[in-house]
Design a protein around this nucleic acid. Structure first.
Lengths: 207, 207
DNA sequence: TGATAATTCTATTGCACTATAGAAAAATAG
DNA sequence: CTATTTTTCTATAGTGCAATAGAATTATCA
């Protein structure tokens, strides 16, 4: 009896997990659309056809839902990047892969990534620091690839790894703000951005 | 008498304009800090040491204050750019000047530019379209300089002017999110970003 | 089926917020 | 000094919101 109860409390049933995830999905959608402060828990419930108060069976607070959305959003960026950084390819190639991998979730996980990018600043201290650490992990990956490229001569040795990282991430993150308006496929964006980052705009054929 | 009254209504006294501007300044500050939906009119009043209701002597609504902040924020970006685009210098030089001019207000008008960049999406239709037009004017300036650079051979002819513009603006706008943390002067950022945009990361001295 | 647990519901509390009304106070002008 | 205008104030209406309490419903399982 005690065991049964404990198990129920500690590891929620499959159905609870599933429903919880549906709610997080809905939250991500409205948070991305109207911002955290601009959405009411009623908005989330409406999207699911359930009552506002019923949400509190799954979440302690609106803030908790934001934490979950942001954590998933951040994870979507970091996971693939950690794979790429270790794959042993040339730094140029890895950098392009990092750019492509960073753009991808801006599309197929748009609600999560947009919420992570724009709304994480409203998280309470503790969880804000947590997603902050994930951000820094991602930045460190970019910096590491750039440093390795400089060391082995693929990249210019006067490159500032930190600023280059921030420039590239800013360039990529902004995609989420305009790519719905601009009719251009994501892989083409990745291609063009990779080329711009590696070669710049200047025409080197000129005399 | 009628003349006197009309004058009072149509062109507010110097003091009214001045006080109005103080309120807009305060609004910009809290909007930038806590977001539009995250700030109350009480927050704005607190910053000025006045009563919340007194704000309504100068503004019809919180929304009106946001409109004014965003309009000023947008103007700060466009004005200098329109000067630069016509100055007849080589496209490479003009592009670097555009980048530097775009970074500048992110510092000395930080509250206005951050509010413009992050909060304009909450504006009502009409004024959102108005600041949208200003954004497009700025983008058009970047695109024009890039096209001119391609035509005269300064830039690679396979450059995509639209995507390059969006890449560069994204890169620059992101500065507002991190430059307070990173201890690096703005002119150095402009220098590094200009160099990256023109020359890319690749080491062209390598064999 | 009937008992127990899981899930969703109705109803409500209490608070924070925008905006308005009109009085009070301060500034300005005759 | 008095009258008038400008500015700020107090007080409050009205709304929307997050969160809680506890009843009703639905699912699970012996």
């Amino acid at each position: 009896m005690t065991r049964q109860l404990k198990q129920t409390e500690k590891s929620p049933q499959r159905n609870v997990r599933k429903r919880r995830r549906e709610i997080v999905d809905a939250a991500a959608r409205v948070f991305a659309e109207r911002g955290y402060h601009g959405t009411s828990t009623q908005d989330i419930a409406d999207l699911l056809g359930m009552r506002q108060a019923s949400l509190y069976y799954y979440f302690d607070s609106k803030e908790t839902a934001l934490e979950e959305v942001c954590a998933l959003g951040a994870a979507g960026f970091v996971e693939k990047a950690e794979e790429i950084v270790r794959n042993g390819l040339p730094a140029q190639k890895r950098l392009c892969q990092l750019l492509a991998a960073h753009i991808a979730p801006l599309d197929h996980r748009a609600d999560y990534t947009r919420t992570f990018l724009n709304e994480r600043k409203w998280l309470p201290m503790e969880s804000r620091r947590k997603v902050g650490r994930m951000s820094r992990r991602l930045e460190a990956i970019f910096e590491r690839v750039i440093r390795e490229g400089i060391r082995n001569g693929e990249f210019r040795n006067d490159l500032n790894p930190r600023m280059t990282t921030l420039a590239l991430l800013g360039m990529m993150n902004a995609v989420s703000t305009w790519y719905e308006r601009e009719s251009i496929p994501l892989d083409r964006i990745a291609e063009l951005f990779g080329d711009l980052a590696l070669n710049g705009a200047r025409n080197t054929d000129a005399d």
